[in-house]
């Protein structure tokens, strides 16, 4: 469904992507994790036609993003990181414009707008100017807009950035619902728990390279099931254990500050890169 081969991107002297290759099968919810500047948005921009790769190739649903760009674009919907609703237009007009850009007939556009506004729980806001919407509602409208032309692939670039936890969870439910509808979802995020909750598979991107790619549980199992965090000489040290007893035994009689917890994806990322996934 999404096939990327050896994708690179240079901005002047900066190498934003250094030979990324991956394959996302149909119906998968794929999370692309990494700190800001790791190349997540650049990858999405290239795949959706907003940027040109320096080298490498990619296909969306079998269509080459360069040679068959128009067909490739028809396959995908994009929810970019920046809020990019047209502030001068109402919610309805924003969605209608998107439908026009994707050459949808008028009657089909009207029906789809009504359906999608119900879907994202915003039917009562159809005549509201976009500039009067809250942050969470804007995100939901942007998702609805990206779904207008029934794309086979949905790119979500940091869809919950800056939202409060309750609204974030509401967006997660919506994303799950979209996946259950049959779409392939390519999600970038720096919220580890978002990827853990949503993703079938995750890739960790660091400085333009994929450093790990697998199912979340498989990645965590590589480290162990339990983590012991301990402050030693003023610095946090983490050790991983197969079971909790083993972790508890290693604490011994020392009275240092410590905590025992489940291994998470952040541990995986740190163990691969030595960095935290932070914005």
């Amino acid at each position: 469904m999404i096939r990327i081969e050896n994708l690179t991107k240079k901005y002047n002297r900066t190498e934003a992507l250094k030979g990324v290759s991956l394959h996302v099968p149909a119906g998968e919810l794929f999370a692309y994790l990494g700190p800001n500047g790791s190349g997540k948005t650049t990858t999405i921009k290239i795949l959706t036609g907003l940027a040109v790769p320096t080298s490498g190739e990619a296909w969306l649903h079998g269509y080459h993003i360069g040679r068959q760009s128009i067909e490739a674009k028809r396959q995908c919907g994009l929810v970019p990181q920046n809020i990019n609703l047209d502030n001068e237009l109402t919610v309805y007009e924003n969605l209608d414009l998107h439908g026009k850009l994707f050459q949808m007939p008028k009657r089909e556009r009207a029906a789809k707008i009504a359906e999608l506004l119900e879907y994202v729980d915003a039917a009562d806001r159809k005549d509201s100017p976009a500039k009067h919407l809250s942050g969470g509602l804007r995100r939901r409208i942007m998702i609805a807009r990206a779904l207008m032309h029934s794309p086979k692939i949905l790119f979500l670039d940091e869809p919950t950035a800056g939202l409060d936890p309750a609204i974030r969870r509401r967006i997660w439910s919506l994303v799950k619902k979209i996946q259950q509808g049959g779409a392939t979802i390519f999600l970038t995020t720096h919220y580890i728990e978002e990827a853990e909750f949503l993703a079938d598979r995750v890739a960790f991107l660091d400085e333009g390279k994929i450093v790990a790619l697998d199912m979340p549980q498989n990645l965590m199992d590589r480290l162990g099931a339990w983590a012991l965090d301990r402050i030693e000489n003023g610095a946090m040290q983490t050790r991983y254990f197969r079971d909790r007893d083993e972790a508890n035994r290693s604490i011994g009689g020392q009275d240092d500050s410590f905590s025992v917890r489940r291994v998470n994806l952040e541990d995986v990322f740190i163990s691969f890169t030595g960095k935290k996934v932070q914005p």
């Binding site: 959706t48 907003l50 674009k73 994009l78 990019n84 047209d86 502030n87 998107h98």
Partner: peptide, 18 residues
């Protein structure tokens, strides 16, 4: 304004139009 403030130009760039 569409490009720099509202980023709507991205919507046009991602659309299947020449």
């Amino acid at each position: 304004i569409a490009r720099f403030y509202w980023h709507i130009f991205e919507e046009f760039q991602a659309a299947p139009i020449r």
